[in-house]
Design a binder for these strands. Structure first.
Lengths: 235, 235
DNA sequence: TGTACATCAGTGAACGCGCGTTCACTGATGTAC
DNA sequence: TGTACATCAGTGAACGCGCGTTCACTGATGTAC
């Protein structure tokens, strides 16, 4: 109990567990989430299918582990981008660009993991609560960047008609969660930029841009430039 | 050949074919695309599973029929919204709002059909060319509304830095496809609004807004108001 | 109009497949005395 | 340090399931003469 030296058994257990996850990830990349199969995973690993049950109580638990892993991986990429630009003193707009690019880059590198977390929900699967924390990492990285800009006084005020009262209410919840000091109008626009970002990435990763846009890079850059402006992030 | 009076056989064929499709649609709504099964469909219809092969050569062809149906249904909803507001002389901005609401309304009413066409691609399924036409109907309805505004001279010019040359190239293809007379800057922004719209709807339909936004209606209204402004659609 | 043949919708059995999960077991690792 | 027992990873057979697709068939509908 609380022992710092793990036993051989414990070490083996951690390793095999990681191998199963890794193989599952590999198969996810080929076949997609709904056809992920415990049997196929263990087969590839050269073990009996029943052995998997020593590590994951059911197929859904394996799926959950993959989802958590994906959220964490994406979240880490976004956080790293946000932190690096904070350290190097980038402008809010540059930070926004860098984080957006990191998110898109991750999605393109891991299309099936992206689909797993931002695509259509897997039928019959209900994501348990423990996915909520990892899921919010990306979002908090983006929100943090806006908060930082606000605190540094570098946020352009939002022009245009005042927010509808109902919208002020909606935004209030978000403010408390992630953007304490940011004015409601800016938060409202940040929500729009947020959905635009993932809409753009989803269209690209899911092939919706085919036949319409050839160079998705260029269109992405334009989109984040426009939306950075909409939010009021200054160069 | 070319006979206008269909035989009893032909009429029965059309009816059964429609029944299979309808039942497949019903099951899609419960279980999602990847677990759509020919056997389950025919079972529910009280016929032998092999009978389905008189109507659809394979499961994938059934899927394709459902996809085409979904695209057409959504496309029609968007076109109807666009036409009705054209007839009643709505402003470009009002037309934009109405079409966006129609698209969102359809998605909320038919979440699984929405997921089928805008969610993660079904693994192993390759959409055949005949889906392209129906798929472009929504997009063309949106593009048409911008074109109309341009022709009527009611499009606000886009402020801000000039488009990057690479972006001008990208936009040129879109211009020829769907927005002949519209200036490149506006088309570029229309692309951003387009991905924002579907990003917002996907987040809502796929449950990504849960725990962040309670009243999706209000946030949606705000989003299309902001993006209508970004594109330059006047009230 | 009546008959002979062709077409084709629908049947039911069968093939071969892969899946998730359970269970009694063996043998290696860990632990208490 | 050595022994006896407990823990637990991994096995292999089995259960019951549902799937897509094929095939030879029956019987009703359609068509040519």
């Amino acid at each position: 109990m609380g022992n710092t030296i793990p036993t051989a058994r414990a070490r083996a257990r951690a390793e095999v567990s990681a191998e199963i996850l890794a193989e599952a990830r590999r198969q996810l990349a080929v076949a997609g989430a709904s056809s992920l199969s415990l049997r196929a995973v263990t087969r590839e690993l050269g073990m009996a299918s029943s052995a998997a049950y020593r590590y994951f109580p059911s197929r859904d638990d394996l799926l959950t582990a993959l989802i958590v892993e994906a959220y964490d991986s994406l979240g880490e990429a976004a956080e790293r981008a946000a932190d690096s630009t904070a350290d190097s003193g980038g402008s809010p707009f540059e930070r926004w660009q860098t984080v957006c690019r990191a998110i898109r880059g991750w999605a393109i590198d891991n299309p099936h993991e992206y689909a797993l977390i931002y695509g259509s929900p897997v039928p019959g699967y209900r994501a348990p609560v423990l996915t909520v924390g990892p899921a919010s990492r990306v979002t908090l990285a983006l929100a943090g960047l806006v908060s930082d800009a606000q605190r540094a006084g570098t946020l352009a005020p939002v022009a245009g008609p005042p927010l509808a009262p109902a919208m002020v209410d909606q935004v209030e919840g978000v403010r408390q969660l992630a953007m304490e000091d940011v004015p409601p109008d800016t938060i409202a626009r940040a929500l729009v930029a947020w959905t635009q970002l993932f809409g753009q990435i989803s269209f690209e990763v899911f092939g919706q841009l085919q036949g319409i846009v050839e160079n998705a890079d260029v269109v992405f850059e334009h989109a984040i430039a426009v939306m950075g402006g909409v939010v009021g992030l200054r160069h």
